[in-house]
Computed example of a mutant assay.
Amino acid sequence: MPEVQIDQSRCIGCGYCVDFCPVEVFDLVPDDRSAGAKKAQATREEACWACDTCVGQCPTNAIRIVESAEETQSRDRDEPCAPPLPLEEHELYTEWHRVLMDILRLRWNPVAISLIPKGQPLPDVAQPRVKLRHCQALMSARRGKSILMPAQCHACPDGTHILGLTEIPPKLASGEIYLQFKKLATIDAAKQMVAERPRLPNRSIRATLVSPLQEAQRTPDVIAVIAQPEQLMWLCMSSSFYSGKRFNFQVSGYNAQCVETTLIPYTTGKFNISLGCYGCRASSDIGDDLMFMGIPKAQMPELIMGLKQLGKKAIHDSRNKVYLPPNL
């Protein structure tokens, strides 16, 4: 269980931690040293998710969340690991990685995302020493890290519920927390946003796994590409190279990585583009110039073939501005 540390000499009793905590860890209690004053106290510390929302909202930096590395480990010592991928499958993902990186000139690795259902064995992949949000894990995977995260490794109660690892806390289900963040105008709007987003059945997923695509440890359900708009444009064109079809994307600015980049492709079998969201942009180092695309594995072969064809001429011509008037 995470330890919630409150520096009472810094606490001013503003109540922000009470208002913003999604799992209602805090209360304001009378301050014995000052008549009529109140201080924050973690009266339900056992409920803490270590999401650090309270840390970020505290105006005096009075709160720290301390975690133990042992608490995030979940595999039974006697439980066998999932078998490694066959060499042929590994080579396929390595080739996809090469094509995406070379033709699009990506800076970051495409990320293989796997949602491991309840009852299935876990691969032999390190779990994080501290809790992470799904979006934070994706940002680490684009840099080359493979991360396995059962429910107790996830720091965001919202994303963890959406991805089917846990139940949703009441304060999130009601939409109340979104009003605290001033992200929606009314409680009805907040409830509508919660009702419209897709989610998997509670506790149907045992763990999430993210890896650089070329180092995938399990057959991915979705491949995430973190890139600039121009690069994602070519992926859209690659997907329609043989069909000429147009696309409709689901975006909202809420729950970008868990819903828009991961769950929508996972549940619909169609790729989706995301602009990012408040949470992922506030809690990771994602650049303001970057967007996200989630691609179901089943769509990758046709996309890769289309991208190879576009790479022969169209991408080169566009990037070299062949139609730009000389005096413009």
Rank of each mutant, 00 (worst) to 15 (best):
64 R>D: 14
78 D>C: 02
261 T>G: 00
293 M>L: 10
238 S>V: 08
308 K>D: 01
2 P>W: 09
278 Y>G: 07
206 R>K: 15
62 A>N: 09
185 A>Y: 10
284 S>D: 06
214 Q>K: 13
156 C>Y: 09
297 K>M: 09
40 A>C: 05
282 A>I: 08
208 T>F: 01
184 L>Y: 07
31 D>K: 04
244 G>P: 03
135 C>L: 06
228 Q>E: 15
84 P>I: 12
241 F>Y: 15
50 A>Y: 12
276 G>V: 01
318 S>P: 00
56 G>A: 13
96 W>Q: 14
22 P>I: 03
93 Y>G: 02
39 K>Q: 03
136 Q>I: 11
320 N>G: 08
148 L>H: 11
305 M>Q: 15
314 A>E: 15
319 R>T: 03
124 D>P: 08
8 Q>F: 08
119 G>P: 02
131 K>P: 03
243 S>N: 02
145 K>S: 12
299 Q>L: 15
147 I>H: 10
100 L>W: 06
117 P>W: 04
93 Y>V: 02
243 S>V: 02
30 P>E: 04
319 R>D: 05
242 Y>T: 03
56 G>Q: 14
189 A>D: 15
251 V>K: 10
143 R>V: 04
84 P>W: 07
186 T>V: 06
54 C>T: 12
165 L>D: 02
79 E>W: 01
62 A>I: 11
270 K>C: 10
156 C>E: 04
100 L>V: 07
131 K>I: 05
97 H>C: 07
5 Q>G: 00
31 D>S: 05
203 R>F: 07
32 D>I: 02
76 D>Q: 06
234 W>D: 06
229 P>G: 00
284 S>E: 04
69 A>D: 13
251 V>S: 13
171 K>G: 06
240 S>L: 07
104 L>D: 11
78 D>I: 05
289 D>E: 14
10 R>L: 15
230 E>S: 08
177 I>L: 02
86 P>L: 08
34 S>F: 07
150 P>N: 13
291 M>E: 05
70 E>W: 10
278 Y>F: 14
186 T>C: 05
40 A>W: 03
168 I>F: 03
15 G>F: 01
161 H>Q: 05
231 Q>I: 09
238 S>P: 09
301 P>C: 04
88 E>R: 06
